[in-house]
Amino acid sequence: MLLYICKRILGMIPVLWVIVTLTFFLIRLAPGGPFDQEKHIPPEILQNLEAKYHMNEPLYMQYAHYLGMLAHGDLGPSFRYENRTVNEIIFETFPVSAKVGGLGLLYALVIGVLAGLFAASRPNTVRDYIPMFFSLIGICLPSFVIGPLLMLLFAVKLQWVSVSGWEKPTDIILPAITLGTMYAAFFARLTRGGILDIIRQDFIRTAHAKGVRGWVIMLRHTLKGGILPAVSFLGPAAAAMLTGSLVVETIFNIPGLGRFFVQSALNRDYTLVMGCVLFVAVLIVVMNLLVDIAYAFLDPRVSYE
């Protein structure tokens, strides 16, 4: 197992290098640069600015310079946020996104898996149709609809929580629910599907034949195998949720990392774009590794020895 993990971690390096290289050149291909603004900048000043950020050097030099910084774990200074480095921005904003995403994920898992179990316990009956109907709605409704609706109800009408912002501990609730709802719906459907697959297996029939009680079979045998599809989805879902969502963070004005993904590209904040992409890439690769490890525990057919 340890050998397997080591191999996977080593395998990450070329993947990340390809991502870094592609991003580095792609973002520079886009027309316009970090210093373009509506009011004219005298050419002399523009030259000074470019020199300050090594942008007057040939592209391969800039690339070598960036890789050199990266090797030291330095993502460079942000072009847009003048007194912050990209490392600082990520360390300052990722915990915020991770808190919202973590709570959202917990909510999505609990609601989603329970609804899936509930639906799968009596397939093709009302007990199945009702949760699956709601999960379909959850998948279809985008967060920019759910978010403002929750805001109108709980913040403007009932005034239980603030409209937006990140000032009070309760400010996490609405964004987490908005973010988690779609994932809850996915988890519900994946759990239901996985469990229905397992229920038809011989070993479940054997357990029934032996006279084991229904809920014991469900918890001890069915759930363990049936939850596997949801677990595979957990990797990318966790990476996406923990790094924050642009839409949710903009609607609720949360100082998380998600807003920087799009904003940094629009600002042509080259270093911040690179930092965000790299950070998410690492997170996705790590989450997938964790999922694969979890598989070894959950599925007796999988072994990395």
Binding site: A98, K99, G102, L103, L105, L106, W166, E167, K168, P169, T170, D171, I172, R220, K224, A294, F297, L298
Partner: peptide
């Protein structure tokens, strides 16, 4: 089953840790 249980427990604790941290320092 034991291993499975400890996995649930560990991930539960992790998530609980994430959310019980106060959201922001300033509530002045």
């Amino acid at each position: 089953m034991k291993r499975l249980f400890s996995l649930y427990l560990a991930s539960g604790l992790l998530l609980a840790g994430l959310i019980t941290t106060p959201a922001v320092g300033d509530t002045a």
